[in-house]
Every structure is written in C-alpha cells, then in structure tokens.
C-alpha cells in the first residue's frame, strides 16, 4: 500500500477519535458544571478541556476570561483552534478524501456526511440544536465511522492502519483525560464513613464520559472508589477505552501489519509498563508521572510508525 495513503488513513482514524474524545470531555465538563460547587471549582472545570488539548495558552491569547460559552465555542468550532471538534472532523475528512478510492462507499460517505453536519455550523446553530445534543451527535458519528470501518472494510492494510490510528489516539486521549481529571476525583471515600457528594459525582461523570459507569458497577459491585476507577480505566484489558485494551489493540494492529521490530518493541514495552503497574503503587505515587510517561511513549510510537511505514521523514 502506498506509504502516503497509509499515513492518510492512519490520521483519518486518529482525527475522528480525537473529535469523539473531545466531545466526551466537553460533555463531562457540562455535567460537572451542574454540580453544586464554588465559583472557583466551576471555573476550573472549564479549564480542563483547554488543558487536555494543550490549548490553554492559545485560548487565553484570544480570550480574557475562561467562561463556559467561550470554551465550548472554542473547543467545538474555534476558527483558530486546530484541534476543535470541527477542525478534527475536517482533517479526518480531508485525509479520507485523499484516499477515498481505498475506502468503501459506506465509510467515505459516512465520514463525508459527518463533515457536512459541521461544515457550516455556527455558534448560533449550535445553541439552537443544543450543545449536549450536538456532542452526542459527534459521539454517534464516531460510532458510525467505526461501524463502517468494521462492517464494510476488507481486513487489509487500510483497515489495520485505521484501527491502529484509532487505538493510538484513544490511548493518548484516555491518558490525557485521566491525568487532568485525577486530582479532582480525590476526596474521601464512602467506605471511610464520610460523605463527599461532589467527589462522588465527579467520579461518576468521568466514568460516564468513558462509557464505563455500568461496567464499574457490574465488575466491582461497589461504591465509586478511586483505586477501582484506576484499575478499570488503566489496567483492565476488557474495557475498550482502558490503556491496557488500547495497548493490546495497538500490538494486534502492528502484528497484522507485519510491523518492524522498532515499533513492535515499543508497543510491547508500553503494554508491559501498563500490565505490571500495581494500583496500590499508583495510588501512592499519583498518576501524573505514570500517565505522563504513557503519553510520551505513545507519541514516540506514533513517530516511529510514521517513519517505519509511511516514509514520513
């Protein structure tokens, strides 16, 4: 397969995943904002999307205040925001357009329609249809994308490059989200006999954002406790957005693509690092260092992949 086309397909999937991750994050922020909180706490909720996407400074250059409306508009539509949902969907579509001859009609038309849904969208339209509705729509369109990918594409190189791109972006997104949100989840646990309703709600919102709330109840049949949340979102290979699961998916993709040792070794190392982590240790040291390491390793892996397969110098 043409190296450039592999690159396009890889990034097509990454961008769709990126848009979805931001939609989930914004949804979580919106719901956090409904919780009773001090003005300061509420404000910090709206810092999260900017921090996770690395756009805080750029945002502050354009905006004096961090307000709900401004952050939402910037994160969803921001003209000067290269990682806004709209920009990511546009990039996904451009990458697909460059390789549309290799995609099934279902996949291309699905993605093209997603793009047409945001191409002319303005802030006023967004308010009219409802922000939450729109964010749900973005999530659904990402599901449609994955569905088309799984349901219509031949299991050839293009398919695996798309899955690989999706998995790598998901690893990055999960790690970033947890890293930023983790401190706000702290608070006493119910088991200690104290009641910190806010901490509880924040944990619930995070699990919801990662579609993991029901799974938590099913697996642990317990109150929402941070060490269990860490176990669920980091280490359990059966949770589709956990780091363990995406690392497995990355390795699977690399094996299917007959990747070179350079990238496979890195991916296995990443998996090992996740697999050998102990929740107890993580709770003691905090997640920051661990997740920072994961984010760097994922970025490294992505770069190695691009030179190995996609001839990107």
């Amino acid at each position: 397969m043409l190296a450039r086309a592999a690159n396009n397909i890889f990034w097509m999937a990454r961008y769709v995943e990126r848009a979805e991750a931001l939609a989930r994050l914004l949804d979580a922020s919106l719901r956090s904002a409904l919780l009773p909180a001090t003005g300061e706490q509420r404000l910090s909720d709206w810092h999260t999307p900017l921090l996770v996407t690395g756009r805080y400074e750029a945002f502050r250059e354009e905006n004096e205040a961090v307000t709900e409306g401004r952050v939402l508009s910037y994160a969803i539509l921001g003209r000067n925001n290269p990682v806004s949902i709209k920009a990511s969907l546009g990039n996904a579509r451009e990458n697909a357009r460059a390789t549309r001859h290799m995609l099934t009609t279902d996949l291309w038309e699905g993605l093209n329609q997603t793009w047409l849904g945001v191409a002319d969208l303005g802030w006023k339209d967004l308010q009219r249809q409802g922000i939450v509705t729109h964010l749900e729509w973005v999530r659904t369109r990402s599901h449609v994308f994955r569905g088309c990918l799984y349901g219509s594409m031949r299991r050839g190189e293009a398919f695996w490059f798309a899955r690989l791109g999706g998995a790598i972006e998901r690893a990055d997104a999960t790690a970033r989200l947890l890293r930023v949100k983790w401190p706000s989840l702290q608070g006493s646990d119910y088991s200690a006999g104290q009641h910190d309703a806010n901490a509880y709600y924040r944990r619930m919102v995070l699990l919801d954002a990662l579609s993991a709330h029901k799974a938590y109840r099913e697996i642990y049949a317990d109150n929402l406790q941070v060490h269990r949340i860490a176990d669920l979102l980091l280490l359990r290979p059966d949770m589709p957005r956990s780091l363990a699961a995406v690392a497995d998916e990355i390795i699977l993709g690399l094996e299917k693509l007959e990747a070179g040792e350079g990238s496979l070794k890195r991916a296995r190392l990443l998996r090992h690092r996740i697999g050998s982590a102990q929740v107890g240790d993580l709770m003691r040291t905090g997640l920051d260092v661990f997740l920072g390491g994961v984010i760097d390793e994922v970025a490294d892996l992505s770069n190695v992949l691009q030179t190995e397969f996609m001839m990107v110098p």
Partner: peptide, 19 residues
C-alpha cells in the same frame, strides 16, 4: 492514486514508496 512525491527514480526506473 499517487502524487509526484510518492514516486522516485533510481537506476532510471520509477518506484513508488509503499508500506
């Protein structure tokens, strides 16, 4: 579907860069 940058000439032969 290739662009110019996907192709190169070596030994007076045209090659495309693939995965």
């Amino acid at each position: 579907l290739v662009e110019g940058s996907d192709l190169y000439v070596d030994d007076a032969t045209v090659y495309m860069r693939t995965t």
